[in-house]
Design a binder for these strands. Structure first.
Lengths: 207, 207
DNA sequence: GGACAATTTTTCCGATACGAAAATGAGATT
DNA sequence: AATCTCATTTTCGTATCGGAAAAATTGTCC
């Protein structure tokens, strides 16, 4: 509150206020109704709606809970390339190749930035030697489906587990993990990661 | 700032701080690094991490942008049953059956509540008549992979598209959509939805 | 141990958030 | 016209935010 907050364009704060005003208008509520529901002062809500004031986190939570709105609605991704109504199709073989030390994998839908999920496919060569010194970690959650062959899943602190076609795994991807073919033939996998950061989907979330 | 903010349990503010601290720790950053990246003062970040201070909306946006984190990461479902370090395996055939008007599908990992992703498999009977009066919609994003057979994907406002084994689609699931087998044989699909709300994973996200 | 650098926390102060109350504006009624 | 009600905005006092600098703590090296 000392350094002038116009460090940030007022357009952000004003946008927040517009959303709030829209929510209220859609409901046909008065400022008083909002105040009652949220426990915030009438004047506070008025000022926020007009972008004259910026709420603290505490008060934002209080407001969101009070009026029954999910907090994330106030922070919808800006600059996100995933568009409302987005619909994309990737025929088999449509991917962008990406390589890490351990894998070569096929990013699906690389043109869609900032997706909530990052799907990719990969082949695990039979007999490949994995670099076990270096478990892979990244924030978020990961779903693995074995499409073909057999895969050994190494998860830090866990005994290795072998999955075959149709088997799947779901885990916290910040836990060190590594995949390897477990059979005499190459294995084929699908991996879907939650995108923990607003990174370029072509960046390796699995380095 | 006049009415004491402890109107709201400090646990919320403290939780926000913990997440911020965790992000920093995972990166191996100092407070100074965070400060440089975000333009906030070192002391501010320290206080926020320890729950001693609550940021305003403006500053939260500034922080999130500066450190390259999507704001919604700070509001991920609380009371989530997905545990840090979680690791679960589902052998083929391990699922919970769920039925809607149009589909019978197999929820994977139903025991894990509040996952960021909801993976499920399904079979689409050949020659089944779909109820086209009623597109399916639910908030969030959806990834579809055709495992076997051919599938017609109907997306509201779009021409139907036929996908075959290995083809995939990624789209905004709030857009009306519907799947149907497109071949003489049954089709097999994998669908992964983002879980837009803290709902029971056994609840139908696709009714 | 001491010296030093790096990191974090504390202090202090100006600016802003926030609420209660007053003022204003608009519409309805007499 | 005046009066009343309701909704919104403005005012003003207090608490807290937020930053710069100082102090404290931690880590490393000799």
């Amino acid at each position: 509150m000392s350094k002038p907050q116009p460090e940030l364009p007022d357009s952000q704060r004003a946008e927040f206020g517009r959303r709030l005003h829209e929510i209220r208008r859609n409901r046909g509520w008065t400022l008083h109704n909002m105040a009652e529901a949220s426990g915030l002062a009438v004047s506070t809500i008025s000022k926020v709606e007009r972008g004259l004031m910026s709420l603290t986190y505490d008060r934002m939570l209080q407001l969101a809970r009070g009026i029954g709105v999910d907090m994330t609605e106030f922070f919808s991704s800006e600059g996100s390339s995933f568009q409302p109504g987005e619909f994309a199709v990737a025929p088999k073989g449509t991917f962008e190749r990406a390589e890490t030390r351990n894998y070569v994998y096929e990013m699906l839908f690389p043109q869609i930035r900032n997706k909530a999920m990052v799907p990719m496919m990969g082949s695990l060569k039979a007999h490949d030697l994995m670099d076990f010194d270096d478990f892979v970690r990244h924030p978020g959650q990961e779903f693995l489906l074995v499409l073909e062959g057999a895969v050994t899943v190494f998860a830090e602190g866990k005994a290795p587990v072998v999955l075959r076609a149709g088997d799947s795994a779901y885990f916290d991807s910040s836990r060190g993990h590594l995949y390897a073919s477990a059979g005499a033939t190459d294995a084929r996998i699908l991996v879907v990661c939650t995108e923990a950061e607003t990174t370029d989907p072509r960046d390796d979330p699995r380095a």
